[in-house]
Write a protein that binds this DNA or RNA. Structure first.
Lengths: 243, 243
DNA sequence: CGTTTTTATTTGTCTGACATTTAAAAGTCT
DNA sequence: AGACTTTTAAATGTCAGACAAATAAAAACG
């Protein structure tokens, strides 16, 4: 682990990169303790605050965790699926909100990915996931549900659909795509008739998955994408007509 | 933006969370300048090093960028697709390497996602992307190519396939799935016959995309998944037989 | 008016110190 | 001897103040 003092980059950045490379490269393995901050400061020939800033950078990426006390220190962190989910969701959300990604583009990506899950979900779904989907459908049918709660329920429904594929890598990849859409969906107001159509499609999808009918599930998702796009277009037309 | 001094969490973590929430919430917009470190230290009633550690955490997530000098400071950063790609790739890579994800699971997720792209790629592919895929196929046919270079070319091929869908959100989501597989693929040694089969499937896929035949493209990807799994199984059997 | 120099501001880094947490070691009582 | 309590040492967390370096605006100068 070396750094280049002649480089223009900040020292703390270089140190963070150096340690990160060691982790990715396998020189530092999970749960291994890094040298103490003072020792790292000596090794890299910098002061302790500089080392600390580097460690904070790594901690922000869940690459290390720190522990205080006598046997404390910085440890290489096992990146859990939960950590990765969370990162994925915030990154995706910011990406969409900051880059003027059209609703259409985001929607297309999301449903393309979900359709990729469907054949696996059909094969592997368990009773829990079917029950979750059905109970969310029931909730979505309640007339006094707010639009926001409706969207939240929608997210839960689709997460169950994705988790039914029983592939944690897929679930991780899709967490962002599904949850990042929520702020965009929240801009839509759903009429009772809109909701009824969506609930009907949800029912169709869950029955297809129950019956292990992959084609019907995919078709249902396709119809849901079309429906969602139509709804969004209606909203945007109304909005532009007002201005 | 407030923090809770009675909380057990570290101050720098709380400050980072507070600023992060302000960005996600829209209170701080892209390119807006944050108060200087000294001002933030006053506002949060902490010392400057503590503020700095908080800012480094945010910088590590590409949420802010810093600039030195008279008009410098910390600015809310527009999270670019490039930044997000890079984060996605390293997160996915670490996730796979640290969690004993089976080759099968990773492979299944990757090809499921790629098949989701195929129908869109068929519709939107341009000449550049077809040319890239064909030139990578040519390279993969060179007998003196190392296994590592073969895998790298494979990644380039598949990225072109994904980019052909012309959906940046999809490309971002898939960057991780495709590139994170590379270290796993690198464990495989490809015989000349293995390579020939893969190249043949790649050719089939690119022709299908050229001909706008979505079904053939999907079938080709399915066959490639099967082929890849067979190869991996062969490697693992050989390896366990040796021990 | 254009160029150069100065200056003020801000981040980057250093030094040294103290506070807090934590587990192990030492001590004490039964 | 064993269980409980106290002490201690090591590590991170935080603070204060200082200087270095970069940078753009302001001032000085030709």
């Amino acid at each position: 682990m070396k750094i280049d003092p002649t480089s223009s980059a900040d020292l703390s950045v270089q140190i963070a990169q150096s340690i990160k490379a060691a982790i990715i490269n396998g020189d530092l393995i999970v749960d291994q303790r890094l040298p103490s901050e003072s020792e790292l400061a000596d090794q890299f020939q910098v002061s302790r605050p500089t080392v600390r800033e580097a460690l904070k950078r790594l901690a922000a990426q869940s690459l290390i965790r720190t522990q205080r006390g006598a046997t404390g220190g910085a440890f290489v962190n096992r990146l859990s699926f939960e950590d990765a989910y969370a990162q994925q969701v915030t990154t995706s959300t910011l990406l969409l909100s900051m880059n003027e990604v059209s609703f259409q583009t985001a929607c297309e990506a999301r449903y393309a990915l979900e359709r990729a899950c469907a054949p696996l979900s059909v094969l592997r779904r368990n009773a829990d996931q079917l029950a979750t989907m059905r109970s969310e459908i029931f909730r979505q049918g309640q007339p006094d549900l707010s639009d926001e709660a409706f969207c939240a329920s929608d997210v839960t429904f689709h997460r169950a659909l994705v988790d039914a594929a029983a592939n944690p890598v897929l679930s991780y990849q899709l967490a962002g795509a599904v949850e990042a859409m929520q702020p965009l969906m929240n801009m839509i107001t759903f009429s009772a008739r809109d909701r009824a159509r969506i609930v009907a499609l949800h029912s169709q999808i869950v029955e297809a998955i129950d019956q292990r009918d992959g084609t019907a599930a995919t078709d249902g998702l396709q119809a849901l994408e079309t429906e969602t796009l139509n709804l969004a277009q209606k909203v945007f037309e109304t909005r532009s007509a007002k201005t």
